[in-house]
Amino acid sequence: MDTTTGKVRSAPVIGGGIAGPVTAMALQRAGIEATIYEAYDGPAENVGGGMGLAPNGFQAFDAIGVGDAVRAVSTATSGLVLHSWNGKKLAEFGTLPGIDPTRFVMRAELFGALRQAAEERGVPTVYGKRIVRATEDADGVTAHFEDGTTATADVLIGADGVRSTVRRLIDPNAPEPQFAGTAGFGAMVTVADVSPTKGWMHMTFGKRCFFAWQVFDDGTGIWFVNLPVPQALSVGEQRERGAAYWIEHLRQLCSEDDTPAEQMLAATDPKTMLFAGSTENMSPDVTWSRGRMVLTGDAAHAPSSSSGQGASLAAESAVELARCLRDLPLPQALARYEELRRPRVEKIIKETARTNARKAAGPVARVIRDALLPIMFKLAKPESRLWQFRYPIDFDAPVA
């Protein structure tokens, strides 16, 4: 640490998923030496399904110069179309005026692009480093790893996801992620008998599950399902049943809905089935920092996948944390970071909870939902959603 200013000069970033590389690159740009420590023995290739990257996420990516790399592996979408189980259109959300389109990306492709960008910038990643504890003194913080090695720096950053170990090191009584009522499944497919959707993602509130799909002009497509389940379902539990079981089970559940689920599920190769586990929200009661340790990304604030904002919010927070650490002494930097970020992410998480409730609606609630949603969306002004998608970051501007 710079003893004259009290500002941070080095930071280990715990977690090599999405938030980790973005945080490390943002720190590097801020003049802070950063190393990524990943618990697994190698990169998590071909893990996870598809996701939306909102315009505000790209504003964060652009702030550290990786926006074009992410655009290269993602596809612009025209908007979303919501349907009821019988095919009735409930609402349509196109790209808002003055806002870039949301883009679709497979998690593996996004991870690969960010990992490559970090490598090209000389940001080191050390694999097989599972943090077990941390110790602090007046001069710094030391991460202790399961293999007996350590890493000492000015501040330790937990970017280790929704089941963060660093979160428990900051607060041993930290809340666990909250089950949001559904489990996720998906796959990339090639379908000859389903028309291209011209850039639109279609989503159906089905009788027994939520089904979404998009078909590209080359005949490839993506589908995903949010299946209401009575209790949390892990990825391991999904895989234990087997992809063939779930494909047939989901076909039966979607059989009464007016969607191309039958064709797209039939075209799914079980080997390519993607399991997402349960949808989860992070409680707003999380303690974001203590002493020389701080959280970012899903470790601090994890909206469920229904938000379409998980990766984008993580990128925003990573960039803002780096700016605060660059410009302010450590205690003030962490306090200012939380002031900048907590109100925004908690508002989005609250909005997402409403969406999750709609997906898991029972028979009576489904009828009420399908009757009220068209009215609600018709009355809502498009500009009322701009706050989510417009979050410009001037990286070079000083943090007050």
Rank of each mutant, 00 (worst) to 15 (best):
M1D: 08
D2R: 03
T4C: 13
G6H: 00
K7E: 03
G17R: 09
I18E: 11
A34E: 00
E38Q: 08
A39I: 14
P43F: 12
A44G: 15
G50V: 11
M51F: 08
F58N: 06
I64S: 06
V73G: 08
S78L: 09
G79M: 02
V81Q: 11
H83Y: 11
N86A: 09
P97Y: 08
G98I: 05
I99K: 10
R103N: 09
F104R: 13
Q116H: 12
E120N: 09
G128P: 04
D139V: 12
D139K: 14
G140S: 10
E146R: 15
G148K: 11
D154S: 11
I157V: 15
T165H: 15
V166W: 13
N173A: 14
P177W: 03
G184C: 11
W200C: 00
K207A: 10
F211I: 02
A212Y: 06
Q214H: 13
V215M: 11
D217C: 10
D218N: 08
P228S: 00
A244S: 11
A244P: 12
H249I: 00
S255K: 10
D258T: 13
P260H: 03
A267I: 05
T268S: 07
S278Y: 00
T279R: 04
N281T: 08
D285K: 03
T296V: 13
T296H: 07
G297A: 11
S305M: 12
A311Y: 11
A311P: 15
L328Y: 02
L328S: 03
L330H: 02
A335Q: 14
A335F: 11
A353K: 07
R354F: 15
A357L: 11
I368E: 13
D370N: 13
P382D: 06
S384K: 09
R385K: 13
R390P: 06
I393P: 02
